[in-house]
Write a protein that binds this DNA or RNA. Sequence first.
RNA 1: AGGCCCGUAGCUCAGUUGGUUAGAGCGCUACCUUGACACGGUAGAGGUCUGGGGUUCGAGUCCCCACGGGCCUACCA
Length: 900
Amino acid sequence: MPREIAKAYEPQQIEPRWAEYWVKEALFRADTNAPGPVFSIVIPPPNVTGSLHIGHMLEHTEIDILTRWHRMRGYNTLYLPGTDHAGISTQRVVVKHLKDQGIDYHELGREEFEKQVWKWKADAGGQITQQMRGIGESCDWSRERFTLSPEMSRVVREVFVRLYEEGLIYRATQLVNWCPVCLTVLSDLEVVHEERRGHLWQIKYPVVGSGEFLVVATTRPETMLGDTAVAVNPEDERYMHLVGKKVLLPLMNREIPIIADEIVDREFGTGAVKITPAHDPHDFAVGRRHKLPEIDVMTDDGHMSAHAGKYAGLDRFEARKKVVQDLKAQGLLEKVTEHTHAIGICERSKTIVEPRVSTQWFCKMKPLAEPAIAVVESGEIQIVPENRREEYFNWMRNIRDWTLSRQLWWGHRIPAWYCKEHAHVSVAREKPANCSMCGAANLEQDPDVLDTWFSSGLWPFSTLGWPEETQDFKTYYPTSLMITGYDILFFWVARMIMLGLHFTKKVPFRAVYLHSLVRTGSGEKMSKSKGTGLDPVVLNQQYGTDAMRFCLASMAAPGTDIVLTDDRLASSRNFANKIWNAARFVFVNLEKFEQRGARLEELAAPEVRAKAPYEYGGEVQLVDGWLFNRLAVTASGVNSALRNYRFHEAAQDIYQFFWGDFCDWYIEWVKPELQSADRGRAIVAWKNLFAAFDVALRLLHPFMPFLTEELWHQLPQKHGAKSIALDTYPEPGDEQAHLQLLVQFQLIQEVIVALRNIRSEMKVDPKKKMAAELFVWDGITRDAIRKNNDAVIRLAVLSQLTVSEKPLAQAGGAMRSTSQFDVRIGYAEAVDLAAEKARLKKEIEGLQKAIASKEKQLADDTFRSRAPEKIIKGLGATLAGQRIELQKLQDRLDQLERGE
RNA sequence: AGGCCCGUAGCUCAGUUGGUUAGAGCGCUACCUUGACACGGUAGAGGUCUGGGGUUCGAGUCCCCACGGGCCUACCA
């Protein structure tokens, strides 16, 4: 490739090109009828209500890596594209959107509102799709196909009706979490608890018919307006005589009973508790037990209701102030203390959640949870990383009924109809003509919608065609893998497991991989509402898409959260660039070779590459044997890392191989051979170079799809070959092949580094060629060095290299010694004796310590009898080597001290 | 209140069943504008793994305690 073209294809330039390609080709569309193994994966919902952020990118990066990897290994892969949240956040964003346009959403009918939602989603959807392209995903989120689509609604209704008929879904009046801003009930999971400083007010309630006061403690004085009793512990001597009597509720002048209930803690506060069944979960339970009236003193938007007497109409926090004021004025406020307590906050609106009595739909969870616990216990569903299993069990074993209904406009309507006359409930798949109980024709559907996670929990069903036994369903259910952040383990994953098991008796997926969360520099969880999210599009532009992907992968150690830093991103960008430049070297030099009459196909056709490493002169050359062994080990490592969801190890292996081995050593080593006058030698060198490069590209492809795709197309490919993504993935290699060459080469690397080190320490001009003398213990390696004399000379910048048959005397020049070799550069000028001695002393000290500890260990009989053979032998071998090295260093130091 | 996780080089982090002188990237030092690459090359310095105790022949790795930081779950008014 001419250099100008290479320049035109800077890494940043090629990404959009290939992004387009992916979208058009839809390479990951699965074919149900294709033979072979299946890999299917559930994609988490992209949260389209805000901008996409890095947290999602991590998820999709990992998914895409796994999918490409499986695809290249011949698996029939399928994404089940993520659901769209059809819940509160959507509604909130639309409401804001409408407000910005000056429209009051209350004035719109439900129908019009939904139209607006669709319109907005279409706008945002386009944007999201564009953003997704940048990251190289398959891009087909299928929003329009599935969200609130007829297919999905049908499944939702089917499941709802079945659960209702089984008695698992029921309608009841309960105390629920109510958000006065969102105007809806919330599930327990949507309520966030926060420690807040508040006060504990002690209020005197006059006991009727005596001069006594009963003092109660509360953190929420305004709720006293709805008190219907005061409770004390039945064993509390202080109050025993009062049980059964009444107190006069201050401000309201209502008589309420004093009751005994063991839920009351004698130690806390005054030991007497005001009971407000309509505004406290605790009190609600007490109230039900004692059949107390439930007085709701608030309205749905957090103001005081008509039941609050003269406080009606006040905001709940205003009312609190007023109540306290009035109590104080009447001398009924005993005392006020500081008090810290956890308070429920609405996840979306951040307002304080108000417990309220209300009639809602619930789902019994215990019967669903039990089988879901069992399948994880038995390992039928594998949870990665392991430690999340405990959390799963913890939650599942303490599960409470699920509040299903939401008072929102956007979402799946509850398939329940009420007759106007008696409010009888009819639950059905389609609108019934008549009331199931009284036969009345005048039916109205429940205005509420279902919790968004209800439909999300049915995702494997709705995407695969359940309840019909479709081909898709048979092939891809259970799914291979569920991959998502651990933060929605309960919201989504657990519910898919429960519902999946309940209706099919089969697990919905075999493994759950819970990835880390990406945090900001200051450790905060990324959040759109806090404005702490990093924008992937910006980072893509800054560092390149592949660099960002690689960076995320390289940091994705399971079980720990990720903090993305510029340093790390820059380093990945540098890696992408390194690959690019290495490729340029390959192509630019190839051109010269072609000018000499070689044909590209002859060198680099895929079937040629498959036979590497090629021999020259009847044997595999040292550097080739080494490189292909390294490649085999790397391929094994990467495959096994990916199999265990250890993305960071895979990335690390590839990085090390490509940069540390391929670029730093291999390319440098073979440069002259590629230009060799001996055409046979040059051709072998080229074939091996291409083959190695090709394997490296394929290894790298899932991590850097765009770059590798582009480069892959520059290599000669089979006619009609479309994409590297459809090529094969390098299988785990034979780690024993060329092992001898590997060992020899590594020793030679050490020799070269030692020579460079001498030069550097002695401050020799880097270009000045020096004469060196070398002794290597191992005879075969000695021969190998003689054979590769030119390369060693070049890489160590020598004028000549004399390979000695005997150990070098510890005298003269500048030396380095290990147990395996001695090397010396003849150096006429004065060596910095002090520095050299200091270096030697330091090395000697380290060695002495290491030797002493080993000697001690090996002398220990208990150690010898208990440690495995392998460890003892290894220790012995290392010790022997270290003793030799120590001796050499010692000799050298002595010689210097004597001033020779 | 219960549970989970973290504390390893100046910084950000790896280190899967305990085993031979603990790794990476960035930063730092010295030298090098070498025809793939300064987003580069070569060589190097730098941690005893928060502290204490224990188990073990052997602990960064397992157990206990303390300190520091984070997260999740929880109806103590």
